[in-house]
Design a protein around this nucleic acid. Structure first.
Lengths: 179, 179
DNA sequence: TCTATATCTAAACGGTTGTTCAGATCAAAG
DNA sequence: CTTTGATCTGAACAACCGTTTAGATATAGA
């Protein structure tokens, strides 16, 4: 699974052969079929696993507090979690179209759950009067796109630590939905 | 080229065969080679063409004015331009890894030019005192990620017009880098 | 040590891949 | 009407695809 994830992230699902994955772990291609029914299931398991782990990790965060506090926690959590597993993020955002329709629907549903939490935080902030988003659904999509984009340029060896990145993005997110 | 762009956007570069592209335009696969040297060049021409057209269209916009005015123009331009050609945008952002190293470097350079303009607008705003971005480079990447993300959910048949989307995003962008 | 089970290899399956090429077909120019 | 050059077909090429399978090999329990 790790080898497949790495190769899918690097070259794309369609461009990676079962023989390449097998070679990466030192077996013949046929041996992989003792563990997975087919290539599509391999991709689906990786993506569903990533989304479920994301939701599970998110569920462990505190749920109470002000909308502003929850928004900050969401922002920092998202950046930290995504920067820690760039391959899984990359594959999960890029290979949606490689999923069969049924598998796509499942992953899409999980993603939707995640987006919905942010949307409800923004709605709560609106109700509180502490946040302002003209369209909470679109604001949620915009914030997530902004935050996830960090994985395209962040390099652990670069000039910024994860903490610093968190701070910069939180500053922007906070202001973007401020009253 | 149009057929290839459409298919690449839908299924991905690696997943589309020359025979599929040929069938889309009603010829045999071999006939395509009267116009392109190989499949890689086809992708490269599409991506380079998109980036060059983007830069050319951007270059026609007014360059003067306050940093705030230029930021608004950049924001609205980006959304309008990208929503008008979703396939080209999708392919150009998704298939970077399908490019040969030399071709990747070219496309990456063009993209960098585009990002640099936004970064310089933010720096000018900082100098003017009208904008505030803790790290202009990262703020530029964040804003572009947010704006480009619109192509993932926007549907022409949806509840919002392009003008409305522009307005919502400009509001968020403006606030995110406000003093 | 024998047996049962898990795991692997090596080969094969039918099908598809990007690309080439000889020859057919077409349109326009002389 | 003939010629030229562009364009296309249809077949072929070697290589690779995902997947299956028979049989070899390893592992662990009785």
């Amino acid at each position: 699974m790790e080898a497949a994830l790495r190769l899918f992230a690097r070259h794309g699902f369609a461009a990676v052969s079962m023989r390449q994955i097998a070679a990466e772990v030192g077996v013949q291609a046929g041996a992989l079929y003792n563990y997975i029914p087919d290539k599509q299931s391999l991709l689906f398991d990786l993506m569903r696993g990533h989304m479920e782990a994301l939701l599970a990790a998110r569920a462990e965060r505190p749920k109470g507090g002000s909308a502003l506090a929850r928004l900050e926690d969401f922002t920092r959590f998202h950046i930290r979690y995504h920067l820690a597993r760039p391959d899984a993020v990359f594959v999960s955002y890029m290979e949606l179209r490689s999923l069969s329709p049924e598998n796509f629907a499942v992953v899409e549903g999980l993603r939707r759950q995640y987006e919905d939490e942010l949307e409800s935080i923004l709605r709560a902030g609106e109700a509180e009067g502490s946040l302002s988003a003209a369209d909470p659904r679109i604001a949620a999509m915009a914030v997530i796109a902004m935050l996830t984009g960090v994985t395209t340029w962040y390099r652990a060896a670069g000039r910024l630590t994860v903490d610093q990145v968190e701070g910069i993005y939180w500053d922007m997110v906070r202001k973007s939905v401020s009253v």
